[in-house]
Amino acid sequence: MSTTRSTLRGGLIQMGLKSSTDNDPETIRKAMIEAHLPLIDEAGAAGVQVLCFQEVFTQPYFCPSQDPKWYESAESIPTGPTVTLMQEYAKKYQMVIVVPIYEKDDVTGVYYNTAAVIDADGSYLGKYRKTHIPQVAGFWEKFFFKPGASDWPVFETQYCKLGVYICYDRHFPEGWRALALNGAEYIVNPSATVAGLSEYLWKLEQPASAAANGCWIGAINRVGVEEPWNIGEFYGQSYFVNPRGQIEKEASRDKDELIIHDMDMDMIKEVRNNWQFFRDRRPSTYTKLTDGE
């Protein structure tokens, strides 16, 4: 059961790719893990309580391709090597870690875009599978990912009630609301998004969702350009946004970076008592939102 504290220290890690996409997925995974470990150690030494990485953090964003090679990068959760390793680090630093990786299901040939959640004692709490899967030029995600049906889990960590929403999910306000109604105080959104059409939305949607739901959000994006696809620049700018929709801490555009921020969790109650959006909801009038499904 979570023990909500007045201050929650969060950490977000953004990073560029550390190995050529010509290499096999296991070589790439090892290079990305090696690059992350010093920042994980830094987060642990700084007393970070909840740490999150970017979307599919052990691999390139391979969805501009439709190459079955990348199926080999998928891991079992929680028994695969990456989650097992992160359980050790979570226990070492008494730090909740959100681990976004490519997941292979027990059913052969079925794969998900998933984030595993590890509690501060190293125990595996569960996972969230990306719900909304895009299929547009440069983002052929349906080739790689089956849509998740995780029923909006909220994880009772030692430090907070934690929700996860992954990348393209953020364009859909229904999931933010579902997570908040299920009790989420802090929601992380690990992403891989490039400059162009969506960049102006990067600092619009998560702040709007934080304000609409009276919760904290941590938004994480990778950095750099990934060969050979060159679909654009992953523009970093990971940030923490408060329940008023104000960005309080932001990372750089183009550097590997760990950002750390102390979140005032008392603000959740203050904002919700002031706006009362949950009291004033009229769900009985919203049936057209789901009619015909």
Rank of each mutant, 00 (worst) to 15 (best):
M1P: 09
M1D: 08
S6D: 11
G16F: 00
G16N: 06
S20L: 05
S20Q: 08
D22A: 11
P25K: 03
K30G: 12
M32G: 03
E34D: 11
L37Y: 03
L39F: 12
I40Q: 02
A43T: 04
A43Y: 00
G44Q: 03
G44T: 01
G44C: 09
Q49M: 12
F53K: 00
T58P: 11
Q59A: 12
F62A: 07
C63L: 11
K69M: 08
E72R: 13
P78D: 14
T84N: 09
L85E: 01
M86R: 00
Y89M: 11
A90S: 15
I101S: 07
V107S: 10
Y111V: 13
Y112R: 14
T114E: 08
T114F: 06
A116G: 14
S123I: 02
Y124Q: 01
Y128L: 12
R129H: 10
K130F: 00
T131G: 07
H132C: 08
F145K: 07
P147M: 11
P147E: 14
A149T: 13
A149C: 08
W152G: 00
T157K: 10
Y159E: 02
K161D: 06
Y165F: 06
Y168I: 04
F172A: 05
F172N: 10
E174Y: 10
W176A: 14
A178T: 09
L179C: 04
A180N: 04
A192P: 04
L197Q: 13
K203V: 07
K203P: 06
L204E: 12
A208T: 13
S209Q: 15
N213R: 05
W216C: 04
G218K: 01
P228I: 04
G232L: 06
Y235F: 15
Q237V: 02
Y239W: 08
P243D: 02
E250C: 15
A251K: 07
R253F: 07
D254M: 08
E257V: 07
I259Y: 04
M263K: 01
M267D: 12
I268F: 02
V271P: 01
R272E: 07
N273P: 02
N274M: 08
W275Y: 14
T290M: 13
E293W: 12
